[in-house]
């Protein structure tokens, strides 16, 4: 009965996590653990709202969000690759810095705090024609698909191909695996890492745009609500492989979605919220222990 609706909302809740995780996993394949996804999502959401209102175009808004976050990502990458900053601390610092800058802009430019409403924000449209809704079970989910969700899933399914079959994909994997080898064969490993972080920024920006424009049409300081870290958990859980990571995102989106049911069944909301992290921890332990067993044999 409600399967359709669960499907719809799981899909929508998954999209921002998925977009951020796509960026994060590519970044990590190139050897950078991106703790700053949260910051880039937030700035993406902000830019998306401003631009959507100004241009009346969801497309330009998403593009602007993605590009601005890509630039932030690229600059962030420079501190890591060129100035040898520790990526974890720099990422945490970026999260604080971006939140501070956005708060500042909100209060000084827009004379508001926390929430920014702009007139005539254009939301993401439903893409597929209405008759899709008639398809049983998955119909409603299909008909509520927005362009970013479609883009995210297309990317997920293209990504394995891109990573295995294109030059840049090979370079990224080689850089993450053995940067000295990449350099030895004449590739610019640092530039490849920078590009991957910019890519992560691009997708985190889209994730932010989705949060802001999927249904709300406004910016809020708490909009990302730790989804950057959930994305991190997802690509750790999926071990940087696109399909597996996407499945982890779906699982986390589903968990988020079923909170209400679990809450009525007596689970405290706080403890439900920690499941992704617990799962990553357990997965990490499991794989490490298994790897060691294997090595000992």
């Amino acid at each position: 009965m409600q399967v359709e609706q669960i499907l719809v909302s799981t899909l929508i809740l998954t999209t921002p996590i998925l977009l951020a995780a796509i960026g994060g996993l590519v970044n990590r394949q190139a050897g950078i653990v991106n703790i700053g996804l949260e910051a880039k999502m937030l700035s993406g959401a902000f830019v998306a709202v401003i631009v959507s209102s100004a241009t009346q175009s969801w497309f330009i808004a998403c593009l602007a969000a993605a590009l601005s976050s890509a630039v932030i990502g690229w600059m962030f990458s420079l501190t890591i690759t060129r100035a040898h900053a520790n990526m974890i601390v720099a990422g945490l610092g970026l999260n604080i810095l971006v939140a501070g800058v956005l708060g500042f802009i909100l209060s000084w430019v827009y004379k508001t705090s926390g929430t920014l409403r702009q007139p005539d924000v254009v939301l993401l449209p439903d893409v597929l024609p209405e008759f899709f809704e008639k398809i049983p079970v998955i119909g409603p989910a299909l008909s509520s698909l927005d362009p970013l969700t479609i883009f995210a899933w297309i990317t997920v399914f293209c990504l394995p191909f891109v990573l295995t079959n294109t030059r840049i994909g090979l370079w990224i994997r080689a850089t993450g695996n053995a940067p000295h080898v990449t350099r030895a064969v004449g590739l610019r490993s640092l530039a490849i890492q920078d590009a991957s972080t910019a890519f992560a920024g691009f997708f985190a920006g889209l994730a932010g745009a989705h949060l802001a424009l999927a249904s709300l049409g406004l910016f809020n300081e708490g909009l990302t609500a730790g989804r950057g870290f959930i994305a991190l958990a997802a690509f750790y859980f999926g071990r940087d492989r696109p399909i597996q990571t996407a499945m982890a995102c779906l699982l986390f989106g589903f968990l988020d979605n079923t909170q209400i049911r679990l809450q009525t069944a007596g689970f405290p909301p706080k403890l439900i919220g920690m499941t992704p992290y617990l799962m990553v921890l357990l997965a990490l332990i499991f794989t490490s222990v298994r790897a060691q067993r294997k090595a000992r044999l």
Binding site: L170, R173, A174, N177, A178, H180, V181, T182, V185
Partner: peptide, 16 residues
């Protein structure tokens, strides 16, 4: 100068 997680073929062509 070979990346351990790549296949031999990938290592063969890497960079060219």
């Amino acid at each position: 100068m070979l990346a351990p997680d790549l296949t031999l073929l990938e290592n063969l062509v890497l960079g060219e």
